[in-house]
Design a protein around this nucleic acid. Structure first.
Lengths: 226, 226
DNA sequence: CGGGACTTTGACACCTCTCAACTCTCGTGG
DNA sequence: CCACGAGAGTTGAGAGGTGTCAAAGTCCCG
């Protein structure tokens, strides 16, 4: 499955209902296929679009000059990404799991005249982005590796988990390295912490990319207070 | 000096030019005096206003159930704070250093009809808030205590430093405990790191609340890469 | 079946936290 | 005016959590 970037210059209405690819002024960017590993935008790029994830998963990251990387956030279906400041992107954004992405013209964010409904949706998405990043800061600054990992799995469970009797199955779309860079840890610590959560009976590890949450409530509690 | 919360329901124009206190529908909140330690809003409050810092310093924080605190950000003159999500505040906000604060009606953020100019300013402020929090995430997740402290002092230097020959004098408005909660450290580590930066000749410590940056460029470099 | 990337595990080092004692500052009251 | 006390900040010693480096294991895909 490939990720398609769809360009919607003015059309209103719910994104899922409008998947045609329009002729736009920047055709090089429209309807380009995107699959895992490909880049939607890079830090410093002029921000022509704000992106809406329909399916698949994307991630925003910043890389320090010496290579250290921090993942700012993952974008799951329904999320927006790529809010600009001073007309520029300030993170890299790449596709983690193939899917479809809609590119909304940036001016819809700043100007309500052309499409008031989209304008409102984008503003609300930006405000939710702020709140989500506040959560992320608390996690990065004040939680232990165990709490971070539990918080990450809880969020994943709530976003893309599928019920399995009393349990919840979660397929993890990103690598251990992505998880580590999201949580401010190393891959080794993430791996070890997964093992600990398994030993405590909170989760079962089918394989590296698929887990089953055995005690969803306990996992959620763990992410709030140790 | 007291902090005044000023309410500007519809007036456009530059904030500094319009300091009158209007009659508003929620008079209990208008023109209330605020000084260090007082609270502008709390997590969970209905968000009636978005605040603009004119003078003084405010800080936003989140507190975990067990008392651990993370400061999300400081608000210096020119900054906005209190962007809502779902009509609610998701942080506590308190005054760190006395000053004046303007309370803008929240609907100006979501609706451009009443005051388009303010609407634009608030949207841009929200977008800058996102970018600023991305920086903060990188700092919390990937920087050492030394780099965090250097980044904090660099930012403070750029925002409220005053030249002093080749040096830059910085008066630090917040406590070590606030700095620690902002950087995701403990007060002891902050204190020790200040001492280290002093021993390395990067800064001089006049007293706990006043430092002189002796090598501004080196301090800035340190905050980017170790 | 083999190669390579990703993941897990282990041993050890080190950075930061914890706990504790001491110093400094500043306001208060004798 | 000085002594005192409380809070903030600094310094020290030791513990512990997470990082680093290295090796083994697993999975995928040719």
């Amino acid at each position: 499955m490939y990720a398609e970037v769809q360009h919607r210059p003015t059309a209103a209405g719910h994104a899922h209902l409008d998947r045609r690819i329009s002729n736009a002024t920047k055709p090089a960017f429209c309807a380009r296929k995107h699959s895992a590993g490909q880049t939607l935008y890079r830090e410093g790029d002029t921000a022509h679009y704000v992106f809406e994830v329909l399916t698949g998963v994307v991630c925003q990251s910043r890389v320090m000059p010496d290579g250290r990387r921090q993942i700012i956030g993952f974008g799951y279906p329904g999320d927006f990404t790529g809010f600009p400041a001073n007309g520029q992107h300030h993170t890299d954004c790449e596709v983690v799991a193939d899917g479809q992405v809609v590119a909304h013209r940036r001016d819809a964010l700043e100007n309500g005249r052309t499409d008031p409904e989209l304008h409102m949706r984008l503003i609300n998405a930006a405000l939710h982005e702020i709140t989500g990043m506040q959560d992320h800061c608390v996690m990065l600054g004040r939680k232990s590796a165990r709490e971070k990992t539990a918080a990450f799995l809880s969020a994943l469970m709530d976003r893309i988990g599928t019920p399995l009797g009393n349990y919840i199955q979660v397929s993890i779309p990103m690598s251990r390295s992505d998880i580590a860079d999201f949580l401010g840890l190393t891959t080794e610590t993430v791996s070890r912490t997964f093992t600990l959560l398994r030993d405590d009976g909170l989760i079962a590890l089918e394989n590296a990319r698929n887990i089953i949450v055995l005690r969803p409530e306990d996992l959620r509690d763990l992410s709030l207070t140790e």
